[in-house]
């Protein structure tokens, strides 16, 4: 159970970008879709393809990512499956109200008369939602593999964060593997005392309480470590003067291009939505039509 950043230096367009560029671009995409609430597939599709292309350009090896994809799909399933399809609650209320042909109905506890109607609009919404979510998530999903963990602090500093906040970032990265290892050791130590995480007895609450033997030692040791780290940092004059951050960051033309692109996307989305009312959710006619005849 070793936490490792699967980061690898690769000579790709993505990794040649300035880290700040990547954060800013990511922010633009997220804002562009959330602030003006874009749901129109004519906008989502191209943006999704853009994110996807950038993602593929990062050339992350499949073996590094297959695990991650597994969890991503679990996430998608819960959000889409549970909210969009089953509990018709998913999405802008329009989705449920839209008069829309029923594909099929799932009946859970038919006796209780609880049946869920899977309508065209729900399915269509689900698809849009997945697309929208991935568009926003992909730039972040690739970060751990393509961004040197040692650069985050510097990047934030250069984007105007304070010395202290930026260094907190670095320090957090520094300690993660340490605590992951502490946790592994603690798990072993308790197993050696006959403790079996897999088969904890008792009800749910009891089960949670029985996690104490794992949570307590690691947490308490970390509080002790903290005192030493504080001394170590004070003794090396942390926070006595404005800090030098060794690593220089420089924007290259490609960075201006990407940032420009991001900002443009954001503006276009805002203008279309608020200026022309384009961008809301709707089910293209050809669907419903094709369903009816």
């Amino acid at each position: 159970m070793l936490v490792t950043w699967k980061y690898r230096p690769r000579n790709t367009f993505i990794q040649r970008l300035d880290p700040r560029t990547r954060f800013i671009f990511m922010a633009c995409i997220i804002l562009a879709l959330t602030i003006p609430e874009i749901w129109d597939y004519r906008l989502l599709l191209p943006l999704f393809l853009l994110s996807l292309t950038l993602f593929l350009m990062a050339r992350i090896e499949w073996k590094d990512m297959k695990r991650a994809w597994f969890y991503i799909f679990i996430l998608l399933f819960f959000i889409v499956g549970l909210n969009a399809l089953l509990s018709g609650r998913g999405g802008p209320s329009s989705v449920t109200n839209l008069p829309s042909p029923v594909l099929f109905t799932i009946s859970l506890w038919a006796d209780r008369g609880w049946v869920v109607q899977i309508t065209v609009s729900k399915v269509w919404f689900a698809l849009n939602q997945i697309m929208r979510m991935l568009t926003m998530a992909l730039p972040a999903i690739m970060l751990p593999y393509t961004l040197d963990p040692n650069i985050y602090g510097t990047a934030f500093k250069r984007m105007g964060a304070s010395d202290r906040v930026s260094f907190t970032m670095d320090l957090a990265f520094r300690f993660m593997p340490t605590f992951a290892r502490d946790l592994t050791i603690t798990v072993d130590a308790q197993r050696a005392r006959g403790y079996e995480v897999e088969k904890l007895k008792g009800g749910l609450f009891e089960k949670i309480r029985k996690l104490a033997p794992l949570v307590i030692p690691v947490t308490m040791q970390s509080t002790v470590t903290g005192e030493e780290v504080i001394d170590a940092m004070d003794l090396r004059a942390f926070g006595t003067a404005p800090r030098t951050w060794l690593k220089e960051l420089h924007y290259a033309p490609r960075d201006y291009f990407m940032i420009g692109l991001g900002v443009a996307i954001f503006l276009v989305c805002c203008i279309l939505k608020w200026g022309f009312g384009i961008g809301g959710f709707f089910v293209p006619d050809f669907f419903t039509n094709f369903m009816i005849n």
Binding site: L171, R174, T225, E228, V229, M233, A237, A241, R243, T244
Partner: peptide
């Protein structure tokens, strides 16, 4: 418990950076 940076170079540079 005294090393505060994730890589060796930054660790050695930590003090001077703070100055």
């Amino acid at each position: 418990r005294q090393i505060v940076a994730s890589n060796v170079y930054n660790e050695i540079a930590f003090g001077p950076e703070n100055l």
